[in-house]
Amino acid sequence: MKKSVLLEIEQLSKSFGGVHAVQNVSFCVRDQEIVAIIGPNGAGKTTLFNIVTGILPPTSGSVLFKGMPVTGKKPYQLAALGITRTFQNLQVFTNMTVIENVMVGMHTRLKTGIFSAGFRLPQVFKEEKQALKQAMACLEQVGIAHLAFEKADILPYGTQRLVEIARAAASQPSLILLDEPMAGLNPQESKKLVDVLLAMRNNGMTFLFVEHDMETVMAIADRVIVLDYGKKIAEGCPEEITQHPDVIKAYLGEEEGASC
């Protein structure tokens, strides 16, 4: 591959007491790639995301972003470096409007501090105007600009997912982690989202996403990584993965123990 490596995960492990949620997982994500992580329930996918985004510290191993070690950095620091995410259990700010949600996503791009805000210095107004325009563009990208001024809590589940994605993309990060973006979407909605993601990728974005819906995975993933019981059991392009004996075994739930 000619593209440079954006995210590198080395020997990452995480245990919760006796539960080894992630064990010695290594892989990398290159610029403008779309990488899928799949695996049965409880395989450790969300835990892996939580480590990469700084929500949980790893038990061992390291994460490199753009060649820089970022293990132990706080989520907000990683966001400033260019990693944002969405959540499996929706975390839309239900106390705000849709556009405000997206404008929170632009937080790292804006500068207004508490005093310049309080005294309403002239640049604040300019910044707000700019931010509003960009946030609107983000909403247009995912196709919900007409809902910009709705309170987020009245939106249906699928639309809230789109809000989260627009919000995560608002700061134009280098890498977005999507935790089950298709969950709760109807077929038309997921088709639309697939197009959105592909378009964003063509604009330079990189995605790492967890997904159970194999159709989506086949449609957009350049590469697939399979986790089972916290271990990486396979990695390759979507066609390879569906043929992989360990993957079939993991999904059909045959006798374990032989895995890896």
Binding site: I55, Y76, V92, M96, V104, H107, T108
Partner: peptide
């Protein structure tokens, strides 16, 4: 302002606010 939205976002979901910077 940006600050007000940050405050509201903390109220809404600390974990999401944190992950957005």
């Amino acid at each position: 302002s940006r600050v007000g939205r940050a405050l509201l976002s903390i109220h809404g979901s600390e974990i999401a606010a944190n992950s957005l910077g």
